[in-house]
Write a protein that binds this DNA or RNA. Structure first.
Lengths: 337, 337
DNA sequence: TTGTATGCGTTATCAT
DNA sequence: ATGATAACGCATACAA
């Protein structure tokens, strides 16, 4: 039904090659015929067929976004940033909300590959696994298209990482707690992934830097799915009943910190007087609590901008840094002294 | 680099037509050759080229998702639900995070059309405007592909609305407040769109049903962008300073209700004793507040499921209902008596 | 500068 | 049941 390049060429009295040249603003076309062709094109609202174009160029200017858990406000924000920026560069985004399980992520990557996306963004540090053979599917995919890691790093050709120095930020956050006199700092995390391990290391660094002994019982792992604030609250209440003492909580995600606030309310503790709390991500959750959450801002929007810039650079054949690190910033609010 | 259908046909000793038939499991192929061809296909991991397929079929099995503000947890959740479900049906999702402005939405729809998506989902009620001529771009797009409205309704061929009865739900929420003795109920909203108007009507219905006089000064409009909890808090503080009295707040979005909680804290009022609060969407924000927010659950996941089912039905040529209405449910929590 | 002709990898329409 | 071949709509190498 819609017209094709032949229709335009006929109406403009030129060949389809000329129309194509005008469309791709080739320099090898006289100003006169360009005007003439453009007039016809705009006159009938002609738009080149994207499928045919894709077939010829083997590209539809599309970036695949792999997002485990788009309902997480942090990743949702990243999604919005990335999509907006890619679109501004003329690229569309194909979304794949994979589950966190390895098989689902592999499937997501594979599906995007069959769609011949020009590049992929793996969102969230959960993509890189500790078991190195589990990362083979990333190496494989990277042979075909550039892969950008949001909050991850991976030494592999055609894979580019853009991230925040979580270890340092986590260290500084923990030091903030230590320097305000806290000694029993609970570390709550729910993921054993790349950045999860970095944050844990930062926590340990801080303790070492202040000569505080590491207490394993203060490091509390939360399964991937147990992110409900209620579960965190109940978990902390259980720890309290078991006699575990703590005067601060540092979490790998804001939502876990929200749970800590819930716990404080349930346990009749004042925040921050009885319990200091620091979250991570500086998401919109921080403003919902009372008191509001001190949190680590890991520069999401800068990271997203840089991801898009890097992707564009790679696609244009320019040399790009394989790893870009931003520095986190602690946003102090009411949940700390 | 990857093999094509000719490679397969050669290796299997058949014609490309037969390979194509096997691929699209046509009944007109003997079990014997099917086995033979499948063996070759799986042996070398052949996958048909999506672009060529798209060109031939004029479809790449893609649904366009238009999402104003993906950073809103409610829409982000919808995004995740829709994508998962469409994918389960073999459709990929092209994302377009349009701005709220009309021109941006029009542009988003247009862009998706040039990509020849098989259908579009317009997320959020902000897509349907009161000015009817501003909806022409939807009518235009609907001529080409089916359009599903998430939380919207629009009497137009090939446009299908799936929504919650916001008017009724808002009425019931307001009645809940009235029946607990509140009389000065502030209604906070930040959008004049379809569902925004419905909620307002429900609010008015409730007042009428209980014989309470409508006070225009209690209906407080918030510009689209003024969704920060701080701004809501300050706005309410300002209203208080102006001498406006109110003992309850009902909002069109949870985030606005969070702002109301902030106000109560700032003003030294107890929730729900001095001030009852009800939000809308039953989003994750509800659990972050203290007390937790009573909110209207507008059945997002049911709506998403139904959107996908309807889209699939339309694409398969079945007759589908143009409008499907779910009933909201009030989830009572600590912010109301 | 412009036009001709071919390839891109499918699907679908004819024959056989 | 299977095979040859023509679309599908564009980009481009090559010719003019």
């Amino acid at each position: 039904m819609p017209l094709n390049i032949y229709d335009i060429s006929r109406r403009a009295g030129v060949s389809i090659a000329t129309v194509s040249r005008v469309l791709n603003n080739s320099p090898h076309v006289s100003e006169n015929t360009r005007k003439k062709v453009m007039a016809v094109i705009e006159g009938c609202g002609y738009v080149p067929n994207a499928f045919a174009r894709g077939l010829g160029l083997n590209s539809m200017q599309t970036i695949g976004l792999l997002c485990p858990n788009a309902s997480d406000p942090y990743l949702a924000q990243a999604l919005a940033n990335l999509e907006r920026s890619f679109r501004a560069h003329g690229y569309d985004c194909l979304l794949s909300c994979t589950d966190k399980e390895l098989s689902a992520r592999m499937q997501g990557v594979e599906l995007l590959r069959t769609r011949h996306v020009d590049g992929m963004v793996l969102m969230g540090s959960s993509f890189i696994e500790a078991e190195d053979r589990n990362n083979d599917f990333i190496r494989e995919a990277a042979k075909a298209v550039p892969i950008l890691l949001l909050n991850g790093s991976f030494p592999c050709d055609n894979v580019y990482g853009v991230l925040c120095d979580d270890q340092r930020a986590a260290c500084e956050a923990t030091q903030l707690l230590l320097d305000s006199g806290r000694r029993r700092i609970l570390y709550l995390y729910h993921s054993q992934n790349y950045s999860g391990r970095k944050k844990l290391a930062g926590y340990c660094d801080a303790l070492a830097s202040r000569g505080v002994e590491l207490d394993e019982s203060l490091m509390s792992y939360f399964g991937e799915d147990k992110t409900s604030v209620y579960q965190v609250r109940d978990h902390l209440l259980a720890l309290e009943r078991q006699g575990l003492e703590f005067d601060a909580v540092f979490t790998s995600e804001d939502i876990l910190a929200v749970g800590a606030v819930k716990y404080a309310i349930a346990a009749g503790k004042k925040v921050p007087d009885d319990l200091s709390i620091i979250g991570y991500n500086n998401s919109s959750y921080c403003l919902c609590c009372n008191p509001e959450l001190t949190s680590v801002d890991n520069k999401l929007s800068a990271i997203c901008d840089h991801i898009v810039a890097t992707m564009m650079g790679v696609l244009e054949g320019r040399e790009m840094p394989q790893k870009t690190v931003f520095t986190g910033e602690i946003i102090r609010r009411g949940s700390t002294l």
